[in-house]
Simulated scan of single mutants.
Amino acid sequence: MSRVTSRHKVLRLNGSTALARPDTLAGEEPLEIRIGGEQLTVTMRTPGHDFDLVAGFLANEGVIGSADELIALRYCGDAGTENTYNLIDADLAPGTELPASLNRNLLTTSACGICGRDSIDSVRTRTRWPVADDPARIAPDVLYGLPDTLRTAQRTFASTGGLHAAGLFSTDGELLCAREDVGRHNAVDKVVGWALREGRLPLRGCVLMVSGRASFELTQKAVMAGIPVLAAVSAPSSLAADLAQELGLTLIGFLRGRTANIYTGGQRVILD
């Protein structure tokens, strides 16, 4: 069994009867991220696409903005210990400095929010690619098809029911990249990291679709990657809506079936 999933015995209740059976669970393990050998953060994640996760995390925190600024990524272990593939060391280009907000160790759980580290003002000053002037437009029928397209790409969710997903789409509905993780913020980091490593940042003219709610943190990550449209199957938070309004992001929630709520940036949705 891969580290992405694991098998556990469960007692399955059905009415007044119980049956012992195996169940598949989504994997969750810690990943320590280091820069030049110095610990930066520890995040709980589902193993897989770890280099994308680290690259996306660094991009979304404003550390790097292109593949040229990321010299190398490598798995490693501490001296005398076995490499568990839960530690990645990143080498950055000379002169690349960490933002002041990251000059300390952070612990990020798989359910972490922004934890008070940032504000709307800090996102405005840190983002490299403003999204307010992005001319992207998307038709409602394209929007309505995004959740089903993303769901078909959620292979591990199909066997576990325990992972979040993030998908990057073009405005004509083409799925460019999909990633899964036990943490919704990790899934987005993996997508953005893929884009950075492919030389695609900023992601102008793209739509980010997430399987859960649209939190402040996910809205921040969309803005930091230059994505003009964020859509979610569930609700946004009030602070997410405030950030989207302030920075010109189109924020769409409750995208289910053929209905959706447009919270900000309605000019990007093509209406009759």
Rank of each mutant, 00 (worst) to 15 (best):
A231V: 08
I262V: 15
G266A: 15
G212V: 04
A222M: 11
T264C: 13
L251Y: 05
S237R: 06
G212D: 14
S215A: 14
S237T: 15
A222N: 10
A231D: 03
Q245G: 11
I227N: 02
P228S: 05
G266L: 06
M224R: 11
L249Y: 03
F216N: 05
E246D: 13
A260E: 01
S234L: 14
S237A: 03
L239K: 11
G226I: 08
S234F: 10
G257A: 12
T264D: 03
T264L: 05
T219S: 15
Q220R: 15
V233P: 00
E246R: 13
T259D: 10
Q220G: 14
M224G: 03
G266N: 09
E217L: 15
T264P: 02
L239Q: 11
F216I: 02
P228F: 13
D242M: 04
T250Y: 00
S238Y: 03
N261W: 03
L218T: 14
G265D: 09
I227M: 08
A222W: 09
G265R: 12
S215H: 07
Q245H: 09
T250M: 07
A225Q: 11
G265Y: 07
V233Q: 13
I227R: 02
S238T: 10
G266C: 07
T264V: 08
L255M: 10
G253F: 03
R258C: 10
A244L: 01
L251G: 08
D242K: 09
V223S: 09
L230D: 04
G265T: 12
G226D: 08
A232C: 07
A225P: 08
T250I: 05
P228C: 10
Q220I: 00
